[in-house]
């Protein structure tokens, strides 16, 4: 079976966000980029599945040459081939998902893993959108995944619990923490990745439906009061919560 994994290349979660002069993007100076943390789970699950049922795994990333670093990381973990869909312009989730769906179709992948969320724009929708454009089933925010023949049983996280969902291939799965422990690339894997192919092609353009008007900093929260340094401060804390904040 052909399995695809879609990965994004995002600023490290410890990044200090500085807004550029255009007021629409972040200043890339000094920002280090990483494989989106949720996408590591997607890669791991694709590899696990291949190890169980056989087949081939392809990693797809849309972006600039810089995304090759993330693709290489996936190849070093054990993914077979990579595709870079080249585009340096802003894309909203809909046009991104359309381009990814088109490539997934070209690859004839029946099972596709996405992260549940890219930690840059935090949209959490690309997998679900792509599934719909492909006419595939989809289970999002998955913490447990099982495939038997063409039947999928997946557990997804909901408020205060889990839901067990059954569906059939072809399917898109979006991955959540708890699903697995992503492996580290071995030295052998890193060496092998050097010989693996990254196919590069221009991403098909689609209209953006979203227009970013401006990016801004949130109102900075001012540090508040230190009420005390021991148990004697609790009476005052309770009074403030009742009378000033009025939250209890």
């Amino acid at each position: 079976m052909k399995i695809a994994v879609c990965v994004s290349h995002v600023p490290d979660t410890a990044t200090k966000v500085i807004i550029s002069d255009d007021s629409k993007t972040i200043d890339p100076n000094g920002v280090t980029y990483i494989v989106n943390p949720y996408d590591e789970l997607a890669i791991e699950e694709a590899l696990n599945t291949k190890e169980k049922v056989g087949g081939e795994v392809v990693v797809i990333s849309l972006g600039t040459d810089a995304n090759k670093e993330t693709i290489k990381k996936a190849l070093a973990m054990g993914v077979d081939t990579g595709v870079l869909l080249k585009d340096s312009n802003f894309r909203d989730s809909v046009s991104l998902a359309k381009a990814l769906a088109e490539e997934i179709k070209t690859q004839e992948a029946e099972l596709v893993f996405f992260g549940k969320q890219a930690v840059d724009y935090d949209n959490s929708i690309t997998g679900q959108l792509a599934a719909e454009f492909l006419g595939y089933n989809c289970v999002s925010v998955v913490t447990d995944f099982n495939l038997e023949d063409n039947k999928i049983t997946a557990e997804r996280e909901i408020e205060g619990g889990k839901e067990v969902v059954e569906t059939l291939l072809p399917t898109v799965i979006t991955t959540q923490k708890g699903l697995n422990e992503p492996r580290y690339a071995s030295l052998k894997g890193i060496m092998a990745a050097k010989r693996k192919i990254i196919e590069e092609k221009d991403a098909t353009p689609f209209d953006n439906k979203i227009e970013v008007l401006q990016m801004k900093k949130p109102d900075g929260k001012q540090p508040g009061k230190i009420i005390g340094s021991d148990a004697s401060a609790v009476a005052e804390l309770v009074r403030l919560l009742k009378e000033e904040a009025k939250v209890i």
């Binding site: 600023p11 979660t13 930690v119 724009y121 935090d122 979203i210 990016m215 801004k216 949130p218």
Partner: peptide, 14 residues
């Protein structure tokens, strides 16, 4: 909010 709340964006849907 984007970047986990480190910035905000104003957007319009066209």
């Amino acid at each position: 909010p984007i970047y986990a709340g480190k910035a905000l964006i104003d957007v319009k849907v066209n």
